[in-house]
Structures are given as C-alpha cells and as structure tokens.
C-alpha cells in the first residue's frame, strides 16, 4: 500500500512536491492489478493536491482496481466526498462535481465546467471572467500538449468566499514543447516563466496571449494567486510575494498543471484591459 503523505506547509510548492512523489510511487506499481493508496495520514488536502492525485488515479483505472484507505481526519474525508474524489462523478447531496476528467474534446469539458459555474458560483462570477480563464487553459491543453488525459477542477468555497480553478494534463510539458521548437531556456522553471509571459511556440500573430492574459486577470484583476507546474518546475505568482520560480529536484510532473485561487471580487472584473 502506497503511503500518501502530504506536508501541511503554507508553501504550495512543498505540497505539490509531495504529490509528485506519490504519483511516482503510483507509476512504479502500474503492473499490479490493484492500486492501493493509504490516505489515512493526510491531515490536510488542498484542492490542487486533490486534483493531481485524482487525475493520476483515474488514469490507472482502466488497468487497475483502486483500493483507498480513507483519511483518519473527518474534515479531509468530508472534503474528498464533497468533490467526488477521485472519480469526479456527481455524488449524493451535490448536484455538480467540481472535478471533471476527459481524454479528448477540451471544449466539451469546458462547457461542462461552465454549467457547474452557472449552477454553483456566485452571480458576480457567472459572467465571462472565469469562463475566459477556463477556456484559455482548455485551448492550451488541446493545442500544445497532445494529451491522453486531463482533469479540470472549479470550486467555489462558500465559507471562505473564494474560488479554486485547476487544470492538469498528462501531455507534453511546456519545457518539452520548448525543446521541440528550439526555444532556449536554462532550467524547467525558466521555460514555464517564458510561456507565462507571452513566449509561444506558435509563430502566428495572436498566439502566446492565453496564458499571459490569464495570469494578468488572476493577478491584477482578481487579486489572486496563479501557479503553473510543468515537468520539473513551477512558477508561482502570489499576492504580496511577486513571482517565484521553483525547481523540483527529485520529482517531476508528466504534463502541465495550471492552478489559481482568488477571493470573490466585489464587482465584476472587466477582462478587456488584460487582453490588449
């Protein structure tokens, strides 16, 4: 049974590093008929940790049975139930599941999440801002990654009055696509940093804006935090902390994850200043 230990650190990079370690352990057991995960020692599961683990578990499902030892802590168990972890299926008591898994047609997946937003998010977020963020991430997955599995999460937390949005794919990472296109960079976090700031592998005009505009909307418009993890690196843009680059020394993500968190704004954010 794979022990799932995720630190209770304030730094998302530490938790992501722990999740990547668990993902690697899962990969090592891919030949076993049953994938057994011990979640009992998880004290706190952040939405992005749930997204990484859920995406990985679902990829194992066609070949393996899944055996999960539930968390000891009631809060963690309750959170997992509320999101339908790991399958993302609609669960009893919840009209919509915040996790949606897909293996093709990112547009359809985005539309499923739009329905969830229209049903569960505050009115102020039912306009185009959140839909823009999700559509740009979905388009990036479809255009760049050659993925075979992807997962989206969008959740409104009523008590904290905040929103988490994440999308993860198992396709080509940003550093790998940069290497293919001979775009120079030093280490993986630098490739991600370049992608986030408008350097695109697609040469036509109009390209390279999706990730950059999304980052600007989250950072400046919604005053939120924005993270992109890809292969061995991560770029974090957090309120009050600026932009930080991280290199995972011992683990890496096969693919890319974009993640953001923001409080519900008092008035609707106008997208247009961030698109020009």
């Amino acid at each position: 049974m794979i022990p799932c230990k995720i630190c209770n650190s304030d730094n998302p990079a530490d938790q992501i590093n722990d999740c990547l370690k668990i993902v690697e352990l899962i990969d090592k057991e891919k030949d076993k008929t049953t994938l057994s995960l011990d979640l009992s020692d998880i004290d706190w599961l952040t939405p992005f940790s749930a997204l990484i683990l859920s995406a990985k578990i679902v990829q194992c499902l066609p070949h393996q049975k899944i055996d999960l030892k539930p968390p000891k802590k009631d809060e963690v168990k309750s959170y997992m139930t509320s999101i339908g972890f790991p399958l993302g299926k609609k669960v009893k008591g919840y009209s919509y599941s915040p996790i949606y898994h897909f293996n093709h047609d990112a547009g359809k997946a985005a539309n499923e999440v739009f329905e969830l937003i229209d049903s569960t998010f505050p009115d102020i977020l039912k306009g185009n801002t959140v839909k823009y963020i999700i559509s740009e991430f979905c388009d990036n997955v479809e255009q760049h990654s050659a993925f075979t599995h992807a997962s989206i999460m969008a959740q409104y937390f009523r008590t904290k009055n905040c929103v988490d949005i994440g999308i993860i794919d198992n396709g080509k990472s940003i550093p790998a696509v940069f290497e293919e296109n001979k775009i120079k960079f030093g280490e993986d976090p630098e490739a991600i940093d370049k992608a986030v700031h408008g350097i695109s592998t697609k040469k036509e005009g109009g390209r390279g804006r999706g990730l950059n505009s999304t980052k600007l909307i989250v950072e400046e418009g919604l005053k939120g935090s924005f993270y992109v993890v890809s292969r061995g690196g991560m770029v974090a843009v957090e309120q009050g902390h600026g932009r930080k680059l991280y290199k995972f020394q011992n683990h890496c993500l096969s693919g890319t994850m974009g993640y953001m968190r923001f409080e519900v704004p008092r008035k609707e954010v106008d997208l247009h200043p961030y698109l020009k």
Binding site: I199, G208, G233, R243
Partner: peptide, 24 residues
C-alpha cells in the same frame, strides 16, 4: 474588437527582472 486591435506579439518576458530559482 480586442482581437482585431491586438498587435502580433505580447512577449513581455525580456522586460522582467530575473528571479532566483528555489530548489525543492
């Protein structure tokens, strides 16, 4: 209208201050 008025590139990376890479 935004798309029609947009320029051909949005590359802002070269204008950013370099930051240290933290190793985990």
């Amino acid at each position: 209208a935004v798309i029609s008025g947009a320029g051909s590139t949005v590359e802002v990376y070269s204008q950013l201050p370099p930051v240290r890479i933290n190793t985990i």
